[in-house]
């Protein structure tokens, strides 16, 4: 690979943030797993002057399972998720997404923060995290802030992270009792493929009605996004096939897919509807 850049390898978070802050007009990019960035640099889609390697910054590691919230470090890898029984229990959708995420080597190095920060409309971990109401901690040398993942994406490959910031942690509230949390990845093959249509659904049921509904879609809009129009159809209702149809249709009509090499917009809309219907029905049938 030919791409002349400088590389800092700080060993502390402060060091990493300081290195990011000292860009001076240069393009400085953080690199953790590199599974997106190295590919983009090789293809000359990214041309950094300097990189900040995060591989030694252990403060970005670690999962915490508190009574209210679950919090994971930005450098948590996809494989770390798969090896965690707590995640399997608390966020099965994330496990489903992690299983079908790249191949073993990519899962071993690709990080949760990196998947979020890639801004890819096909980022597989994002739909599950959106339906879990995940929140991001963004740190820079000067400040730390939190931001709902739902507010993170601004447009295609545009996000709310400033160039000197890192996603240091990702957290989300534990699911209420009687919740279902699922993800379906539709791709052109089973192993290691870019998602054609991704649907994540989190449903909570209380007193015979759907108390909370979250539906998020991948690869059918410029960014991964929730379809709140569909969620609104379901929340507060005892679900019926007609209501679920209505929600599925809302999801399909709200998404804004494009034609690309993997599928047409029309097919994506069709599968958004079918998979939303399927996942919501399965969740409701299990809970109600």
């Amino acid at each position: 690979m030919y791409a002349p850049f400088e590389l800092d390898i700080p060993t502390t978070l402060d060091g990493a943030l300081a290195a990011l802050a000292n860009g001076g007009g240069e393009t400085v990019l953080p690199i953790a797993g590199g599974t997106n960035l190295i590919v983009d640099i090789r293809a000359k889609r990214e041309r950094p002057d300097r990189m900040v390697g995060l591989g030694e910054v252990d403060e970005l590691l670690g999962m915490e399972f508190g009574p209210e919230r679950i919090s994971i470090g930005g450098r948590t890898t996809v494989s770390d998720l798969l090896r965690s029984p707590e995640i399997a229990h608390e966020a099965p959708s994330l496990i489903e997404a992690a299983r079908l995420f790249g191949g073993l080597m990519v899962r071993n190095t690709g990080t949760v923060a990196g998947n979020i920060a890639s801004g890819s409309p096909a980022a597989d971990l994002v739909p599950p995290l959106l339906t879990l109401d995940a929140e991001l901690t963004l740190a820079s040398a000067s400040a730390t802030r939190t931001l709902a993942l739902d507010d993170y994406y601004l447009g295609y490959k545009q996000d709310a992270r400033r160039p000197d910031e890192l996603i240091t942690r990702i957290s989300w509230p534990r699911l209420p009792e009687n919740s279902a949390n699922t993800f379906y990845k539709l791709a052109r093959r089973k192993g290691d493929a870019i998602t054609v249509t991704g649907v994540a659904v989190t449903l909570s049921v209380a007193d015979g009605t759907c108390s909370r509904a979250r539906i998020a879609l991948a690869s059918v809009a410029p960014v991964v996004r929730r379809v709140k129009e569909a969620e609104a159809v379901l929340e507060g209702q005892a679900l019926t096939p007609a209501l679920i149809d209505e929600a599925a249709e809302a999801a399909a009509s709200t998404c804004t897919p494009i034609d690309d090499i993997r599928a047409s917009a029309g097919y994506r809309r069709h599968t958004v509807e079918a998979l939303t219907r399927r996942l919501v029905t399965q969740a409701w049938d299990r809970l109600a």
């Binding site: 093959r189 870019i194 090499i261």
Partner: peptide, 10 residues
């Protein structure tokens, strides 16, 4: 990543 031959999962 675009030209998809069957993997061990397929």
């Amino acid at each position: 990543s675009e030209y998809l031959m069957p993997t061990a999962m397929d």
